[in-house]
């Protein structure tokens, strides 16, 4: 039997020597990033204010070209377009998903809401812009919301709704919000930096119906749904959010400063991406 085991061992020893690795890490969103003005005029710290987090592995950080730390860019090729940051890999913590009503296109991020009532409260009370159905009437309660979703997606359980369920972020000991991430199939380059940014939702106190939207989501594209309106599309993220993030970062968004703890020197490193730079809002804390 011993020779057989040896042969088996030889077989198991096949090593692909893949340049790509899965990078596991943590992203930390400071409490200040989740502290926004509510409809009633008070500010509150609410994890539902955390927009999608875009994370990428980059060659370095450029602190000069923009008013915030940005990944190192290549040269400008096309006029009016910034240089490409050529990410080695990336992922998100929270992504855009369509939540059944046209009025919610490009306003809902996965991993932020646990159930329908949670969403109704966020849009209605916190933002002051109640969710409206496709006829313009306010959505009364969670059951109505649920039924609309079941009808729209031909679904029969809430587990099929990507935008509901487990929350990505939990409060850590420092009072900041922390989430784990996996960046799969990322080209490992020694010394690469994991950099990320959070797209903060727009808060427009003067006109609450405009609140809740995101600059990195394009309302005019995405899956077309023509039951009521042949021009209606569900919205989708811009496909170059990690390549030229400066096109979508506006004042109010939070950005990682590229600290040492986010640098990856070995595939087993567990980088910590701290979004500690508030663009246009000053430093955290």
């Amino acid at each position: 039997m011993a020779p057989t085991i040896l042969i088996l061992a030889l077989g198991c020893a096949y090593n692909e020597e893949l340049p790509e690795k899965d990078i596991l890490g943590t992203v930390i969103v400071p409490a200040a990033a989740a502290t926004r003005l509510q409809a009633d005029g008070t500010t509150a710290t609410d994890p539902r204010f955390i927009g999608p987090i875009f994370l990428g592995a980059y060659s370095g950080i450029d602190t000069v070209s923009f008013g915030y730390p940005h990944p190192s860019m290549g040269p400008i090729v096309t006029a009016d377009t910034p240089g490409d940051a050529f990410p080695y890999g990336g992922t998100t913590v929270g992504r855009y998903d369509f939540a059944c009503y046209e009025s919610l296109a490009c306003k809902v991020v996965t991993g932020r809401f646990s159930d329908y009532n949670d969403m109704l409260e966020y849009f209605g009370t916190v933002l002051g812009s109640p969710i409206q159905d496709d006829n313009g009437a306010d959505v009364a309660n969670g059951s109505t919301f649920q039924q609309a979703c079941y009808d729209y997606f031909y679904a029969t359980s809430d587990q099929e709704m990507a935008f509901l369920g487990d929350l990505d972020f939990a409060l850590n000991a420092d009072g900041d919000f922390e989430a784990a991430f996996v960046m799969p199939h990322t080209v490992f380059v020694e010394g690469m930096t994991i950099w990320g940014w959070m797209d903060a939702p727009e808060i427009v106190p003067a006109n609450p119906t405009e609140s809740g939207g995101f600059s990195s989501c394009d309302v005019s594209t995405g899956r077309e749904f023509d039951q009521y309106d042949e021009n209606f599309r569900e919205g989708r993220v811009y496909f170059d959010a990690l390549n030229t993030p400066s096109q979508y970062i506006y004042a109010g968004d939070w950005v990682a400063s590229g600290a040492e703890e986010a640098v990856v020197n070995s595939p087993d490193d567990k980088p910590v991406v701290r979004l500690d730079f508030g663009f246009g809002v000053g430093e955290a804390e």
Binding site: E20, F54, G56, D84, F86, P87, Y88, G89, G90, T91, T92, V93, G94, R95, Y96, D97, T110, A162, F181, V182, V187, R236, V237, F239, D240, A241, L242, N243
Partner: peptide
């Protein structure tokens, strides 16, 4: 596939290696 970068669920692209 070595160029495209997906979001956490593999639902959409959020970037690409070569732009």
């Amino acid at each position: 596939e070595t160029n495209l970068i997906y979001d956490e669920d593999g639902y959409s692209y959020v970037g690409s290696g070569d732009g």
